[in-house]
Amino acid sequence: MTEHTRKVGDRGQVTIPKEIRDRREIEGGDKIRFVEVNDEIIIKPPMDEGSLAEGYKIRADRSRQLAEKMHGTSAEATEQLGDAPEWGE
């Protein structure tokens, strides 16, 4: 974890340390997001549609894989135990 302390200017401006700007490839004119979580302020890059779509695709793929694994497990359980009884039987 890297920690830097900066002074807030009269207009609420804060300079992001050069080391962090360089590492995160933040340049003048770039947009950033401020996210408040409990007692912390987190600075994040903006959420672009491509990154958001890729995240949803990864999640959908994981869900599909899990469903495929569970289908096999469910079929095996049915084979071993038989169909589940109806409620009230």
Rank of each mutant, 00 (worst) to 15 (best):
P46R: 04
I26H: 01
H4L: 05
I32W: 02
P46E: 08
E36F: 08
E76Y: 10
V37T: 10
G28C: 06
E79M: 13
V37G: 01
K57E: 07
P46L: 07
L66S: 11
Q80L: 14
D10C: 04
Q13E: 11
A75W: 06
D39Y: 06
D83P: 02
E27G: 09
S63I: 15
P17G: 00
D48E: 10
I32M: 09
E68Y: 02
E40R: 12
E27A: 14
K18L: 13
F34P: 00
E79F: 12
V35R: 08
K44D: 03
R59T: 10
R23F: 11
R6P: 00
R23K: 15
P17I: 01
T78A: 04
S51A: 12
D10S: 11
D22S: 11
M47C: 07
E89Q: 15
A77T: 01
I20P: 01
S74E: 10
M70Q: 15
V8S: 03
D83R: 12
I26N: 00
G72V: 05
I26S: 00
E49T: 07
E49C: 03
V14K: 04
Q80V: 07
V14A: 02
G50N: 04
E3S: 08
G82E: 02
E86A: 14
E3P: 01
T73W: 09
E49G: 05
K18R: 15
G9S: 15
D48F: 04
E40L: 12
V35H: 06
R24S: 02
R59W: 06
E3W: 06
R64E: 03
G9M: 11
G55I: 05
I20N: 08
P46Y: 03
D22K: 11
S74A: 13
K69G: 08
G9V: 07
H4R: 12
D39Q: 12
R11V: 09
G29L: 02
Q13C: 05
I43M: 14
G50V: 03
R59L: 13
S63Y: 15
S51C: 05
I41F: 03
G9R: 13
K18H: 12
G55S: 12
E19N: 09
I16V: 13
A77I: 03
R62M: 13
P17E: 00
I16A: 02
K57S: 05
D48T: 06
I42D: 12
P45E: 15
G9E: 14
Q13R: 10
M1L: 09
I32T: 10
L81Y: 14
I41K: 06
M47A: 08
I20H: 10
A60P: 01
E49P: 01
R11N: 14
D39W: 05
H4I: 02
E36A: 08
D83L: 13
A77V: 03
H71V: 05
V35S: 05
I43Q: 10
K44P: 00
R59M: 12
A67W: 15
E40H: 12
F34E: 08
F34I: 13
N38E: 15
I43D: 08
R21F: 00
G50W: 01
F34Y: 10
W87C: 07
P46V: 09
E25P: 00
G88Y: 02
